[in-house]
Amino acid sequence: MNDHSRALTRAAPILLIIGLAIAWQAPDVGWLRLSDAESKRAELMTSALDALPDQPRVLIGYDPDLGTYAEIRQTARALLADLLARDGRLAFVSLTAEGRALASAELARLGRGEANPTRLLDVGFIPGAEAGLVGLTRDIRAGQLDDGAFTREVELEGIGAFDAIVVIGGNDLGPRSWVEQVMPRIGDVPLLSVTPIVLLPEVEPYLAGEQLAAGLTTPRDGAAYRESLELGNLSRLVESTEPRPLPLLLGMLVAVAVLGQALGARMLEHLRSAGSRSIG
């Protein structure tokens, strides 16, 4: 590597950041679109929510992690707003520390957005991962944090009080743990999920096998679901701006170029060495 290419390699990350910032500032263009207009996953999620009874009581397993939250944050917030728009009552529980930090931040945000506090219940944190999930199926202790009517129902009926479970998952604890530990211990309660794309290997088989009633797993599915929502007055609870596709496109093209250049060079090398072997 000569001095010129070494300097370029050092400057490349900064140039990338500058490029992404310029692209973020640039006006939106028509030929870019995050959502898939015919996303079956988004339609499945809407159907699963439509099938819930009126004023559904929903347990929200809020365990995203800092490393992936930005990817699912807008979809998770849209889903919470959608559930509240359906007059749902939501109980938040976290089994990871990062999930708990983000759940309490989201509850504070919902409070600032003047979401009806009687429809929100903070169950708090349960440690022990699998043991915590199993503990959740045995009894739910929420009275220390809240003493409203919803709390009393949940304390009385436990996990049986809920019409659905929504898992906002992350790297540390995702839908797999819920499918393995909670679903065999409760009845026919639909399990829905919002997960980052890196969790696809563990989520996809459960979606295909219908152990998960619905799941939003890719940015495209999430964008399609958000686009389909009509929240009316509660649109104040979702983020005011959608992610901009141009910086994403730029970053992905950079990734494709970097990987493609390296891959092409390596394959050429392979071909040359194979050619020289055949001549030899």
Partner: peptide, 11 residues
């Protein structure tokens, strides 16, 4: 490379 291309946000 293939999955990155498949996720490109084009309309």
């Amino acid at each position: 490379l293939v999955t990155t291309v498949l996720l490109l946000p084009l309309s």
